[in-house]
Design a protein around this nucleic acid. Structure first.
Lengths: 201, 201
DNA sequence: TCATTCATGTAAATAGTTACATGATTGC
DNA sequence: GCAATCATGTAACTATTTACATGAATGA
């Protein structure tokens, strides 16, 4: 048996920059932000395919600044400490170079639920039912979130072309959760049948 | 705008064991294996949702052995060094406890292509077309791999119930790639329209 | 006044990849 | 003889999460 994806031997080819810096630069191209705001925007808009934690954002901001891709505009209005970062031309260049670069590696990510199903035996099947159920309710929440996001983005002051591009990521998310919900239905049915067959003693 | 998934504040609750040990224990429940074989089996069967490298497998095997969950059966037939590991009752317990535990965290994983689309501007759209194209051809290969795997598993000597459970993971993979292929179609069309609108210089 | 949000950061642990080094065995 | 596969491992690096610490401002 074999599911092999051509994932081996591909040379990295990138400039030693991790995804985090691209995400940060990407947010900063929308406009100057603080570390806190960057995290918040990513959380609110890309959480279904990209997440960042403060532990990664703050060090990355420092690194990008030392590389001359962004600058701090520390406006001390009052005394409240708040570092607002602004992207520089060199940063924009780096960002577009990354966007336009054909290099792209797909990491399938890890799905613990599938791993459990793969290794499970009949006797364990009944314990998987509530887990698929949990998965399904998480997906349901997500579906609503996508619908809401799709509506919200219509009212935002964004260039219509950008809206369309962002739309493709929402499309991806909602299609994915729809597909996964259907998979949950099929899988639940199968698990319930397995449980029945075992004989309810 | 907000796509927020209830991913914050959930306590980990696990026993400090990473996914790798579960994957290794899972493979070993099928029968005694060497580190090399474990890697190979995972590569051949779960690559679409779970991958492990030697750098992780060998240290994990040592750790699991020191914890008394597995043992080495070093059969030196000839002189060729080969450590075959066997799962112990304590290891089986750990494995089933994990499978049956309702704890499950979904990490959405990171999708670089979606990140690019999210941040892209109209001018960059044309450079994204070949990237979506690349993505599509990777997915096409995958689709065939799932079909092949689904056929292969029928001829394997596996308990029919396990076959069904494993089947759910193949189902997931093939439904996912089908859905993503459709997304590629829609996205390609959109990108091509954007390119046309820009006016061919 | 008090909870929430805004805001910045670090330390430690955990996880994971990549590159390297080594060598035996199998099959053509 | 030679290529491919079997086989084990380590070191260094990169990435990522989690927990902690701190405190100001806002608004009810």
């Amino acid at each position: 048996m074999s599911i092999q994806h051509h994932t081996e031997s591909e040379p990295p080819g990138d400039t030693g920059r991790s995804g985090t810096s691209h995400a940060v630069l990407g947010v900063l191209r929308f406009g100057p932000s603080t570390g806190y705001e960057i995290r918040k925007l990513l959380q609110e808009t890309t959480a279904h395919f990209w997440k960042e934690s403060y532990g990664q954002i703050y060090p990355t901001l420092k690194k990008l600044e030392s590389e001359g891709l962004i600058v701090i505009q520390t406006k001390e209005t009052g005394g409240r400490e708040s570092k607002r970062y602004k992207i520089l031309p060199a940063g924009i260049e780096t960002l577009t170079a990354w966007i336009c670069s054909p290099q792209l590696q797909l990491k399938p990510g890890r799905n613990e639920l599938l791993l459990k199903l793969f290794f499970a035996r009949r006797e364990e099947a009944e314990h998987l039912i509530p887990q698929v159920e949990t998965f399904r309710s998480l997906l349901n929440e997500r579906s609503y979130a996508y619908e809401k996001f799709a509506r919200e983005i219509e009212t935002e002051e964004i260039a219509p072309d950008s809206r369309k591009l962002i739309g493709t990521t929402i499309d991806f998310g909602s299609a994915a959760s729809r597909m996964q919900l259907e998979w949950c239905e099929r899988t639940m049915k199968l698990l319930q049948e397995l449980e029945k067959e075992t004989g309810s003693f």
